[in-house]
Design a protein around this nucleic acid. Sequence first.
DNA 1: CGATTGACCAAATTGTTATTTTGGTCAGTC
DNA 2: GACTGACCAAAATAACAATTTGGTCAATCG
Lengths: 214, 214
Amino acid sequence: MVSRNDNASRTKKRRSNAIAQERKAPDRRKQVTEAAARSFATFGYKGTTMDQVAKLAKVGKGTIYTFYANKEELFNEIMTGLIRDLREVAEETLDPSLPFADNLMNVLHRVLDYRDRHALAVKLSQEVRDIGTPEAKEGLETVERAIIGYIARHVKEAADKGEIRPCPPELTAYMMLKMYLALTAEGNHLHEPLGRDEVLRHFRVYCIEGLAVR
Amino acid sequence: MVSRNDNASRTKKRRSNAIAQERKAPDRRKQVTEAAARSFATFGYKGTTMDQVAKLAKVGKGTIYTFYANKEELFNEIMTGLIRDLREVAEETLDPSLPFADNLMNVLHRVLDYRDRHALAVKLSQEVRDIGTPEAKEGLETVERAIIGYIARHVKEAADKGEIRPCPPELTAYMMLKMYLALTAEGNHLHEPLGRDEVLRHFRVYCIEGLAVR
DNA sequence: CGATTGACCAAATTGTTATTTTGGTCAGTC
DNA sequence: GACTGACCAAAATAACAATTTGGTCAATCG
């Protein structure tokens, strides 16, 4: 449990002037983090060994532990990065002058393009399904909560502005995520995998406009 | 695989005039089937042993095999019964003179009351989640397909009549089922378990009316 | 005589022990 | 002092023994 690396992950010191990072001086931390991201996305949490990460990062195993106290912390960093990336995509797509529904569709549109970004989530879902790795499960739930929280804030805002009907924001965000997953999940033999445009079109109908004729 | 019981499940012969079933003459088949239904709902597929069923049914183990060739066939009968019951509830609730949306809500209303009828499905879902019993998984998928097929027929009909927007019936039915499960699934710590009325109210919004203001 | 039963058996499951793999450390190298 | 990889305890896996379970059928019963 305890180790000399209690504060390892918060290593801020990057001495040797930050600007002259130009050539050489391989950034160990980046190597490790990227190798880990690739490995987790390819082999899942269990399937990723620290030796594996070290080899992929072309780094001695001990080096990993100068940045991350243990495997779980390394995994957390990767998952946090996923959340950060998603939020970033959303943030730079959102246009406050547009209606909620348009923003929703635009963000969806962009997120759907990051198939590789999904690779991690897909692999982890499969891992949870097949062997139920607790760490993978918890990681995914953290991402879900983050996404739901993010959507919920915007739903509440839109509801307050009268752009959409009044509705419980959290539950609505939850339903949106579920619909998104139902439409995109390929591990489902109940319906064919849908193309990006179909996903968008159907999401609009089921979520925004409703089935009722008007 | 093969056995003397190839046609066991299709035992139709119930000699000794069918009417005088009044007293005595314990109906072995019924005993077995009901005991199995109770056992599967309580202990799941794996947790149910043939000895257990025999004891519950107060019947020798061999007797079970005069009606069902094996455990899987017995399980199938139970699952088929569940589908039949659900369809029956729907059928006797449906009123052709009412709009699609009203019928949908009415059926939902009635189905939500059969908590005990859900017990089997709930137990099997849990079993699939926890230990992934393939038979349980397949059984649930059969039920899902039946429900989706049933809903899809009515969706298509309603769409043809112009009662709802045009939409792919199968996919729409699939989404409806997913929404229902998302709203009712209690194994979900992402949101509180909803009461019957809340489920109904939200289902109407998310599925029929949509979030858009009109 | 056909319906019913429970001891019986092969196969699958579970419990147990031996072997290997893996997360994490740290003395030594560069 | 950043970095490494042989090293170790603990966890995972494989190999094997003991138990349980699905399914059978000769014997029994009504």
